[in-house]
Amino acid sequence: MLKKKTSSLTFTVVAFLLATALSAMAAELFFKKGSLSTGIADVGFNSFLGYMGKMLLSPYMWLGVLFYFLNFIVWITVLSRIDLSLAYPLSGLTYIGITFASLIFLHEKISFLRWVGVLFIAVGICFLANSADKKVAPL
């Protein structure tokens, strides 16, 4: 059963997409911090249980979980409005935001390779946005 649906990129959808990617990045950052705080590198069969135990006790890991839950709430809202094949690649938008934010607010030097990446993402998003408005015919 397929309902008639449109995949239009409204302001709300774009704002939610940005919120999705930012919360995902915060979660990843906290997971990485949690992983570092265990002091265990290269987990294998023997160290796995000890590693997971330490992870579960790490407040960073739980902050990560909290951000992931926020991420879920925003993402599920995006998915209720546009196709998965459109929403998922569109989250590349964040990387552009992050690059300009670190240039403007943190005065970081952006490498040439990074600008090339940003350019690819920007052109890609133009293509994606152009594929958005098509009405999806029921199969």
Binding site: P89, G92, V116, F120, F127
Partner: peptide, 8 residues
């Protein structure tokens, strides 16, 4: 579009 974003 998806491929370009992925390459980026």
């Amino acid at each position: 579009g998806a491929l370009l974003v992925l390459i980026g």
